[in-house]
């Protein structure tokens, strides 16, 4: 079981490494969206400091959603998905591997670059850690929930737009608590409770979504 888990993660990372442009596109999208906000809202430092966590979180939401459509579509198109469904490893395990690989490729880079972008908004340095940690806890949840949508919209007309319609409302709690973690710390309160809530979200998502993703994949592959 672990062999299959490792094999799928390794395979997906290898494929991503051989097609680095795709990974960079999502990352560049993140950077550009975040940079657009000061242009639209003006460069008033206090305003920028206030909106920074929200802007970065919303951009991270959109960026991680962009790469979701690719999560299963290629495996679906070339028949690998069928082999995964008929493997001796429970589909839930394969799905966890797929989500983990997706997060490593498209979630983790966002987490790493976010503090740099936060500097553009003059976010206080003590808050950079909070922001990074909140994204570190939150982006895996985005990948897990997003994978349900990606599996459900597999092979459908206009799958990408439909996917955002399905997934974005479900992202709301992650966004609220994630951006709120930074807000509350900037208000001088302890963010510990929020980190705990984020951790709880991660546990809940990691427990339930593999089932939902696996069920959705079987439905979509019929």
């Amino acid at each position: 079981m672990l062999t299959a888990l490792r094999c799928v993660i390794h395979r997906d990372l290898l494929l991503a490494m051989r097609r680095r442009a795709d990974v960079l596109t999502a990352l560049l999208f993140f950077v550009i969206v975040v940079s657009l906000f000061p242009l639209g809202l003006g460069n008033e430092p206090n305003l920028l400091r206030t909106i920074a966590p929200g802007v970065i979180w919303v951009a991270a939401l959109l960026a991680s959603m962009l790469s979701l459509t690719r999560m299963f579509s290629e495996d679906h198109a070339d028949g690998t998905l069928e082999q995964m469904l008929l493997g001796s490893t429970p589909l839930g395990v394969i799905v966890v591997a797929k989500v983990a690989a997706h997060w490593l490729v498209s979630g983790l880079p966002l987490v790493l670059i976010a503090p740099v972008l936060a500097l553009q908004f003059d976010l206080h340095q003590s808050l950079l850690w909070t922001l990074t940690l909140s994204l570190l806890l939150g982006t895996p949840v985005l990948s897990l929930i997003g994978a349900i949508g990606a599996a459900l919209t597999l092979g459908l007309r206009g799958g990408g737009i439909l996917l955002s319609l399905l997934v974005l409302p479900l992202y709301v709690p992650v966004l609220i608590i994630g951006a709120g973690t930074v807000d509350i710390e900037s208000a001088g309160l302890s963010a510990q409770g929020h980190f705990l809530v984020q951790g709880a979200f991660l546990v809940i998502a990691a427990t339930f979504s593999p089932w939902a993703i696996a069920a959705a994949l079987r439905i979509s592959a019929e």
Partner: peptide, 13 residues
């Protein structure tokens, strides 16, 4: 049939 099942997974989520 797929619409029903896919909708069910979404509704339960």
């Amino acid at each position: 049939r797929r619409a029903d099942k896919a909708g069910a997974v979404l509704a339960l989520t």
